[in-house]
Amino acid sequence: MKVKVKLFATLRDGRFSEKEFEIEAGSDVELLLKMFNLKHEDVPIIFINGRHADFDTRIMDNDDIAFFPPIGGG
């Protein structure tokens, strides 16, 4: 299945901003972390289609997945 992955802030360093990937059906977020060599503490904020997701959230075809490092402002 096809998914869009977006990385933000420091996660882009040495990686990419936005890319499409073909992954196996039934994969979860954890698989993507492994693909991009990211640890849990690197990505406390994960969105799938604009909703908060977790490491074990199952990914669906055409999902839009966004990873953020720890950030804040206001």
Partner: peptide
């Protein structure tokens, strides 16, 4: 991580992409 690295590097405006995504 927020006060030690994200805020110094990008300032408060680092939130644009995040709040937009939300």
């Amino acid at each position: 991580a927020v006060t030690g690295s994200a805020l110094p590097a990008y300032g408060t405006n680092v939130l644009v992409n995040l709040i937009n995504e939300a």
